[in-house]
Structure formats: C-alpha cells, structure tokens
Design a protein around this nucleic acid. Sequence first.
DNA 1: TCTGGGGTCCTAGGACCC
DNA 2: TCTGGGGTCCTAGGACCC
Length: 423
Amino acid sequence: MKDIFALIDCNNFYVSCERVFQPSLRYKPVGILSNNDGCIVALSDELKKLNIPRGTPGFKIRHLLKKYDIKLFSSNYALYADMSARVMKILYQFTPDVEIYSIDEAFLSLNGFEHLNLTDYGKKIRKTLKQWTGIPVSVGIGPTKTLAKIANRIAKKNKGYKGVFNILNHPKIDDILASIDVKHIWGVGPRYSKMLHRHRICNALELANAPQNWVKKRMTIVGLKTCKELKGISCLDLEMDISPKKEIVSSRSFGKPVTTLNELQEAASSYCIRAVEKLRSQHSVASGIMVYIATNPFKDEPQYVNFANSRLSTPSAFTPDFLSLVNKDVENLFREGYKYKKVGVMINDIVSEENAPLDFFEPSYLDDERKTIMDCVDDINKKMGNNKVTYTKAGTKKRWKMKREKLTPQYTTKWNELPIVED
DNA sequence: TCTGGGGTCCTAGGACCC
DNA sequence: TCTGGGGTCCTAGGACCC
C-alpha cells in the first residue's frame, strides 16, 4: 500500500506567536533573536524581503531598524512552547498518527484517507489551526516525507496555492522536481549541495535519477534514502514515540568575557544543574559528562578551546555527583590570561532508570537517599519556580541569566502576564 | 559593545582480541 | 628480505536537522 504523508509547518513560527498577541506587528518586518539576543533566528516575510539572511547578528542591522521600522524581540521560549503544544494537540483531531518533528513542524500519516480530497483536508487543517490558535501554517502532501517537505515548500512559496500543495499523483511531478535546487532538499546541506553542483547534479530530478551506488558512495546510506524518497519510494517512517535523549547539552555564550576560574566554574555548574535536571525529567541516569571552554573566535585575540571527558563509576542523576566532576574538569582546563566566551557541558552515556546497571560495591543512585533528595528538589522547583533550590557552586548572584532585553510577556503561561482585553 | 543552542546519524580508523 | 587476517567495539569527526 502506498503511504501518504502530510507535513504541517508553521509559517515563521516565533514571529507568528508574537503576532497573535500583538496584532500591530502584522505586515511589519519582525525578527526574533537567539539566546542572549545574538542572531536573528526567525524572520517575518517582510524582513526576509529586505534580504537579511537568517543568522545575521542583531547588531549588524541596527542601522536599518528605524529606516524600515523593523521590530526585533528576544526569544520567548515559554510562549513558543505553549503555542506549539496547542497546535500539536489540534493535529490529533485530524489523524491519530502524528510525529512531532520540531517545535513548529509535524508529519501526519494520512494512510486510509485516500477516499477524501486530500487538498481539501489540508485546507481544513490549516483553517482550523488559524482559527483556534492564530498560527498560520503551510501543508505539504506527498507519498514520502521528503516529497511532503518539497510540497510544503511549494505551498509556502506560491501564494496561489493558499498554503496547501498536494504532490501526490501530480501529473507533472518531474517538472516540479526539476524546479527544486538540490540545496532545498531535506537532507542535503551546504556541503553536499556544493558537491552535487560540482557533479552537475543541480536539481531534485537530477538527484532522483543519479546512479544509486554513486549516491551511496558520496552521501552514505542517508543520501541514498533521500534519493529514493524523491522517486516516491518511502524510506523514512513516521516516528511517533518520543525517545529519550541520548545526550543532553547545556551551553551558553557569555554577555561579557569571563577571565577567572571561579566565574567559569559557576557558569559551568549552573549549566550542569540544568542538564542533570533534564536527565531526571526523562527518567534516565548517566555516567559520562563532557565540559568545554572556549574564547571568542570572532575576536582577534589569543584563542583557547579545550574540553575534558570524565565518568562516574556508576550511573547517577544526582546533581552533586556531576558538579564535582565538572568543577574538577574546569579547573584542569582553565588557563590564566584568556578571555572566555563560552562554556558548555554535555551529558552522555545515558540509560533509562530501569536499565541502569548495578554495581556490587557501590550503592545505586536509584535505591539510596540521593534520589529522594533530587525528587524533593525537583518538586519544590516545579511548584515554586525555577532555581528556588539550587547549589552554592553555581554562585549566588543571578549572573548567568540570559540577556533578553526585548522580551515579550508570557501571555499564556503566567497568570500575571495574561493579555488584557479592554473595552 | 553586540556573532545561538540543542540534537541525531553514519563512517572510518584505531585498539584490542584471537 | 621477511613481518596474517578477521572480527568487534569504541571514538572522533563530519554531515545533517530545527
């Protein structure tokens, strides 16, 4: 049986979230900044038209803000996550088979819906989402995930399709593929794109027809799957179960350069605390942790980048177990005389609590008071707000908070920030 | 002054074993 | 001058995604 996939993709998602609560932003060039108000990570169509590429550092377009009435905002992840959850919940009304692919994208399986006019069904999904959440989406329908992605792109780029494009059984599918540059294919990044162009494989049709063994040799099994998917052979299934993370990263750049060991340890400690929190929230334990420190690569000054891996003898999710490793590692990595820009920690060797190996000689984290203490800390922080209970190693001043100077309110997740309707 | 953060998968090659 | 071969496991690095 032939598969049918639909890809629902929210248009300029972060910008759209802000516009729901600030309608005056409609038709204006709007950009959302990354953490620390660094780069522009989401752009409205109006901002894209000014030829500002995604990833541009905010400060580089400061001189254009007034001229074009550009509005820039800090990223408000609490708001985006909540709006995303609303969108995803609604999708389950249209099919039980939903893969939440990212904060603003979901694949649906429409197998068994062949009797419907699928384009109309897509329009219904789009209309419902717009009415119930205020978020505009594009819908692409195709026989494989990769083709659904392409259909989605066409729906988004050509206003005539009104946000929905169905590539399934399309009479001129080769013409469509020939019009897509390889760099716009899902799974083909900048490296492969350049390589393919060098070999005169410039569009999706040419990639679909390229010799399979050549593709596999150059682009591994992953590239071969992309190639087959372009031909309508489905190789990527819907993945509906949310699998626990295999590694958990927490890292940040600093607003100001950091020069002392103590500050570096405080920062690393606070990221470590976050990472282990995430570890517990997915009911896992881990035994490996990596720490890295780096200077600012954009500056013309002495550079130093280094990392360290260390391990616990038995897997744990007890924050102090990791904190002592992290602090020791940072101390070893630290070199006097550099201006540090970034610190990060990555937890790896993660296993679920049930699969945690036991040790003859050491007590298991799961059986002793360490787990009881952690559960208690998590409970308090959940009820009373983040970091009510924390660790002295992370410092007592709120020094490692992100820079978010242009943050909008948490309209949907904080009682005292609800939008107010005046009459 | 100011340049993000968090993930996954695949492969080649080294280490180690017999 | 001659100096095996094959298997497995692990890791680093490269590619991609949002």
